[in-house]
Nucleic acid binder design. Structure first.
Lengths: 108, 108
DNA sequence: AATAGTACCATGCAATACAAAGTACCTGTT
DNA sequence: AACAGGTACTTTGTATTGCATGGTACTATT
């Protein structure tokens, strides 16, 4: 039994929620999202976020546009779609219910 | 993209936490735990909880004892161990930090 | 041209929730 | 005693996801 592993498991599923939430506030590219999440103590790495962004895009929740950068290769800015906003709304409810349930159960 | 699937992913890792928390309050057998979690709107099924309980037992976080029932087959009552209590304490901290981080990120 | 930094992408593995099917025990009815 | 129904525990296989790892490509600086 490994605490780090359990932490990783707890993170499962919430990244999708966090990323949609962040992109609903402001468009961003992958490295930017990683830094934002890192600042909030939510560790994410490239190998996690790139496939996730691609999946969300393929499902129509996100779109993207390329933008040149003055300090490196071009960046892929992701934007949330209307479908993404709708889904985010449902995820918000789900998250609230989940935390409520967990708190009830674990605080006896 | 499926909401039910995402909900299931969000549940990942927290069941371990919930079960340890419930067993720290009172010993219980699997069907009893399923009912308790169901009442708290945390759906769990047999195929999920039995392997989980076995895993927690194998890792020394739980122990169990058999008890005869007057209305069916014998029941396997699980009890939390000291190691389980220590682990639960760490999971509690992890959960609090995680929800705090998610709320900060998603509430912009 | 060589290096360092930034950004994106692909592959393979490990862990877990769940569906589904199966085993076993007990009680009550016929 | 045989059967049906309910309760409880177990096993197997699948899908999904987070992550480690390695790779590609572009830019700027030296």
């Amino acid at each position: 039994m490994n605490l780090e592993n359990t932490k990783a498991q707890m993170r499962k599923g919430i990244l999708e929620f966090c990323i949609l939430a962040l992109l609903s506030q402001k468009e961003a590219y992958a490295s930017e999202l990683i830094q934002t999440l890192k600042d909030a103590r939510l560790l994410v790495v490239e190998g996690t976020i790139y496939p996730l962004l691609t999946r969300l895009k393929n499902d129509g929740l996100l779109s993207y546009r390329w933008e040149e950068s003055t300090s490196g290769p071009p960046r892929k800015y992701y934007l949330i779609t209307q479908l993404g906003k709708d889904f985010l709304s449902e995820l918000t409810t789900t998250w609230e219910q989940l935390t409520d349930s967990v708190n009830k159960v674990t605080k006896g």
